[in-house]
């Protein structure tokens, strides 16, 4: 199948999920700053940022590519803190 949904794409990627998140989104910063851009919601290639009705952002770290795009795209100081997951954890590409 050539054309695939995002869910189908994500099912092809192998993740070894660490116990603790390597990226933390401070939803209060998103809310308090009244961020309407919500760049993270659009740019994340894994579609891991979920906008909440109250202006906050819900983030799932489990299927993160560790690419850094959210951090680069976010224009709110301190909203996204990120490092790399522990060694051997996180995404493991096999083909790309």
């Amino acid at each position: 199948m050539v054309m695939t949904t995002h869910e189908e794409k994500m099912r092809t990627v192998r993740f070894r999920v660490a116990a603790t998140p390597h990226i933390v989104v401070d939803s209060e910063v998103c809310r308090d700053s009244g961020c309407s851009l919500r760049a993270c919601v659009y740019v994340c290639p894994a579609n891991l940022f979920v906008p909440l009705d109250d202006g906050g952002i819900l983030f799932n770290y489990e299927q993160c590519f560790e690419c850094g795009t959210c951090y680069i795209a976010c224009n709110q100081e301190g909203a996204i803190r990120w490092s790399y997951p522990d060694g051997g954890y996180g995404v493991t590409f096999r083909e790309s």
Partner: peptide
Amino acid sequence: PYELLERFKAHPAVAPLVRGAKLREYSA
């Protein structure tokens, strides 16, 4: 970005090149 990827594969100049191929891995 992944929606752009789908549109790329559907472009009339690209679609015949990828016809019948099967997704093995997605990455970024």
